[in-house]
Design a protein around this nucleic acid. Structure first.
Lengths: 321, 321
DNA sequence: GTGAAAGCGCTAACAG
DNA sequence: CTGTTAGCGCTTTCAC
């Protein structure tokens, strides 16, 4: 910076002013042009570390999800990134792998990095870390999974309602023998989806048909095979997330066991590409982009100092049958 | 930091030493314990901005892909992140959306942020930016797409060979009337895959059966429908990437048009979950995790000062029939 | 083994 | 409109 100041015979502060866009009505536009020109020639880039150290804002946020390679989280992250891009923020993405220790460790690193805000999908027991973030005065908004008790912004869908609607549709279509497959994770969305399933079946007088199968995260393949066998006589199978659905399909293809082709397959999350299958495919679609938008705009408000009470923003998921 | 120094009646440098792990044989272990204890109590986190400004390393790398919500890039990014995590690096992920202007702009921001290195999937024409990164002395490795001419590390698969093997298998199975569908992007992997397809068909004396359909990126839906109609009489359809395959399936489900169920569907990238379909599904699987590992370890070597000539690391993709 | 002091590159008063 | 100056929080000689 000194360099470019010297070449023009002006002071560093003048250069700083124009380079940080705060030169309006302070630096003659002739000088501004010159500064920009020389900066371009020298292929100069401001040092954001120094700038951030000084100003206290890094213009970096972080998105912590379970696993970025998961379709739902990948899309969510993508849309958050696009919003961030518009607002001039870069985003550090992090995978917690549903692991509270990794989550905590990464949160620690983020505190050190002085990110301006965090959008997180908290893993089971993630509440403590979320609180820690807040205590450090860093804005945080949770997505997909709500941390009860905590006073923290939350964006998600009404899992119970959407799940209920979907299962009701199957029941209305005469299906009763519906099995449910879920990941063995104690997280609100999954719990709600299953609760709705049980409620609907119970209300339909088919409580005895309730069959739930929990697949351990990261142990999917070995357990899915037995699930498929167990659900052989079902009319329909309800997968509570895309991840479990995809793994089931993939696993089925590898092991040779397979679901009956006349089954109805219901999934929470968009699986429309699979509709070319013989199966009767139904699914629930979450408005991912809107959720991403809302989450980012909330975070931005907080970053800009909004102090009012945390909100709870519930979107409607759509059943496609 | 002063705070914790004061409480213990030592100087800031002593605290710095132990907090940055450089206290061995310099600070009494009693003092070290105390420092750590107080730091914990105060819930203190070093300010990495200041540290980085001083040391010149940010411990942040960046991964620039086309679109993180794309399955292939999502997995690639995920595995790079896991490697980075082990090495103590955080990663800024960026979507170029195949757009050279966005790519250039984001590269500019990264230069300012002083990231320690960049792993990039360059969009068409991305060569110039890659050169710019190198000129700034920032280590960079390219993945998936090779920038010819440039002296820059590259990690990818042998697209021609894998594609060739796959198409040869179809031909050996008696299929001749094979259509190819690809994204309308001028990038080496796609070009190579198609070149192999044409070569194989030509060598089999079926040059007249070559049928190529290019779908414009972001205009998929409208163009896929007509592709499906055009390829109605094919024995097989070869999709050059998972993205185009998934979009085709999804689009088919929305519009009602559909590929004949007795067709053979070949895809470059893993589509094993679709094998439960009636279609005869074949695919080519890239060793994503190994590629991610290689890319990161290469980058790390460069960050650590390795100056030797850029390498070209080709992995073998596996045909699954 | 410990402390004092300089400085990384930038911004923001404030004075001119 | 432009320049001088102090200092963001840390690391790192170098002297004690």
């Amino acid at each position: 910076m000194q360099d470019i100041a010297d070449r023009l015979g002006v002071s560093r502060s003048t250069v700083s002013l124009v380079l940080s866009g705060k030169a309006v009505g302070k630096v003659s536009s002739a000088v501004q042009k010159e500064v920009l020109r020389v900066a371009g020639e020298l292929n100069y880039h401001v040092n954001d570390l120094a700038r951030s150290l000084r100003t206290g804002e890094s213009r970096i946020i972080s998105v912590i999800v379970t696993d970025i390679s998961n379709d739902f989280f990948g899309r969510l992250t993508f849309h958050i990134q696009e919003e961030a891009k518009k607002a001039g923020y870069l985003v550090l993405t992090i995978n917690s792998n549903e692991n509270i220790d990794e989550f905590d460790r990464m949160v620690g690193m983020l505190m050190s990095k002085k990110v301006d805000g965090i959008i997180a999908v908290p893993p089971p027991e993630g509440g403590r870390s979320i609180t820690e973030i807040k205590e450090h005065g860093i804005p945080v908004v949770t997505v997909d999974r709500e941390c009860p008790v905590l006073d923290v912004d939350y964006v998600g869908v009404d899992n119970y309602e959407a799940s209920r609607q979907a299962v009701e549709n199957l029941v209305a279509a005469g299906l009763r023998n519906i099995g449910v497959v879920t990941l063995d994770l104690d997280i609100p969305p999954l719990n709600e989806r299953i609760r709705a399933y049980k409620d609907v079946l119970t209300e339909a007088g088919a409580a005895d048909k309730i069959r739930e199968r929990r697949i351990r995260f990261l142990h999917e393949d070995s357990e899915i095979e037995s699930m498929i066998k167990e659900f052989e006589d079902c009319d329909a199978v309800y997968f509570t997330s895309q991840r479990i659905f995809t793994r089931a399909m993939s696993c089925a293809s590898h092991t040779g066991v397979s679901l009956r082709k006349d089954m109805c397959l219901l999934c929470f999350d968009d699986i429309s590409p699979y509709r070319s299958l013989d199966f009767d495919i139904r699914y629930v679609e979450q408005p991912i982009q809107e959720m991403a938008r809302k989450a980012f705009s909330l975070l931005l408000m907080r970053i800009r100092g909004e102090k009012n009470l945390a909100g709870r923003y519930l979107f409607q998921a759509r059943y496609i049958g």
